[in-house]
Design a protein around this nucleic acid. Structure first.
Lengths: 268, 268
DNA sequence: ATTGACTCTCCCCTGGGAGGAGGGACGACG
DNA sequence: CGTCGTCCCTCCTCCCAGGGGAGAGTCAAT
């Protein structure tokens, strides 16, 4: 008959903790060869060490216990399929860590900032702009803006003119999940040209504004607005007009994480 | 006064779940600007969105809440140190996943096996061997074997002879954590040479043995022995002598995971 | 008989929430 | 003023693979 050993000895042999062995017993993953009915002592057969070793190695690969159960019960041909499925998860986890490492390294190097909406008071000069005005809801903003810029760029091209500064949006209404409203899509031009509907040409007034720059995806810009409104009320200013967003780099050629958007809110 | 919003609105703004926001309140990581005393409703100020955003981004980097608390309280100069410490952990996790991926890939490719101690009956031929005998305990086995091989190789070199087969150990006693005992370190040689104490020269008898091959680090070899003894008793054989381990490749030039050790136990 | 080393079961704890039960609060509508 | 739907509250359990420890029983040696 195969030799029987107590749980402590079996634990030393297999390098599975006593706690783990008791858990595997309870979960029916590795039952002792014999359990004394009166004392409850678990007795393991030496021949079970091989299975225990397999369990230990699969756990070292972070394989869940339920899957280890399948692997141990599967035919050798099916095992590699199960292992391949687990490998997919391990790959996903490693890739996730690679991505997190890239992000945290950018944070450490100061290429990306964590929270600092540094708020400055800017003097926005008068500008001559070509613009179109659109009505949109929050979800449609991206498409609307893209369409509007297309119209503007087409008109400027036809007029043989080039932008004289970074394009910007003016938010005439508050647009959020519940409210739609008007936005004005603007491109500065150096000198006036004739308006050609729907493109309008006008001159913005010189204004003083509280401004901050948001780095990253545009749909994460909300905190920048909240920082601005908080700053404005805390510093005793008053809002003097609709806010504008200026696109400091080109979304078409810039990685999402590197996008820079200045948010400026006219104050008094 | 800053505008106040309910938890659901703040959740939508910050993309932190309501559950998470309530947890952060309880943990004193992000308290609402105001809590209604009678209803218990949480009211958040819009200006808190920036801090919430920071928390969300740090959690996306798997940073523990307690460390996020430190980061938010730290001066900008100290933040990068905290981030660097976390980066170290992320690196360690990624490296661990890389290692697990390497192991599971070897398993899938069949370069390493999970459990299969295939047990065969081998006929071990008579061999002329040079050997030294040593007494050791379990912990000292590695050093003792290395020393013994050194002595043997030195003697063979001096005699102008080369090994005629893979070196092996004979375990004359059971050596485990509680018992020390005798081992014999052997190198086959093609033809007899004069013994020169402590090196002995002799001829092993031809024997039939149950054998299996263990792949991997030597300190994980225990299951191979257990598999052998189980097989021997289950197949009605009897042990007919001390077991031997034959080193099928050279530990000096082989990666630990690729080491091959044949364990053979004479049977009747 | 006593000691000391094991072993048993049972319970609580981990981290960061998710899911849900049961009940109060709020605003819009009729 | 009642009602409905939606939101919010607290409190409970669950996840995963065990770790830590309390209190009591068991085994072998002295």
């Amino acid at each position: 008959m195969a030799q029987l050993v107590l749980i402590g000895t079996f634990s030393a042999m297999t390098r599975l903790s006593v706690k783990a062995l008791r858990l595997y017993d309870e979960l029916d993953l590795l039952r002792p060869a014999k359990v004394d009915a009166s004392s409850g002592y678990r007795y393991y057969a030496l021949g079970q060490a091989g299975k225990a070793e397999s369990i230990r190695r699969l756990r070292a690969l972070d394989m869940p216990i339920e899957e280890i159960r399948l692997v141990l019960a599967a035919s050798p041909a099916d095992v590699s399929g199960l292992l391949a499925a687990h490998r997919q998860r391990l790959r996903a986890e490693r890739d996730r860590h690679d991505h997190m490492l890239a992000v945290i390294t950018r944070l450490i190097n100061g290429e990306e900032r964590l929270m600092n909406y540094t708020i400055t008071v800017e003097n926005l000069p008068a500008q001559i702009v070509a613009s179109v005005r659109r009505h949109t809801d929050l979800a449609g903003t991206g498409a609307t803006v893209a369409e509007g810029f297309g119209v503007l760029v087409g008109a400027l091209t036809q007029a043989g003119r080039h932008p004289a500064g970074a394009p910007f949006l003016v938010f005439h209404d508050v647009i959020d999940a519940d409210n739609d409203g008007d936005i004005e899509i603007c491109i500065p031009i150096g000198a006036p040209v004739a308006a050609a509907s729907p493109v309008q040409v006008g001159q913005t007034a010189e204004v003083t504004a509280a401004a901050t720059t948001h780095q990253g995806r545009h749909d994460e810009i909300a905190p920048a607005y909240h920082a601005l409104t908080t700053w404005i009320t805390e510093h005793g200013h008053e809002i003097a007009g609709p806010p504008r967003e200026t696109y400091l780099n080109d979304p078409a050629v810039t990685a999402e994480a590197d996008l820079l958007t200045q948010v400026a809110w006219p104050i008094r």
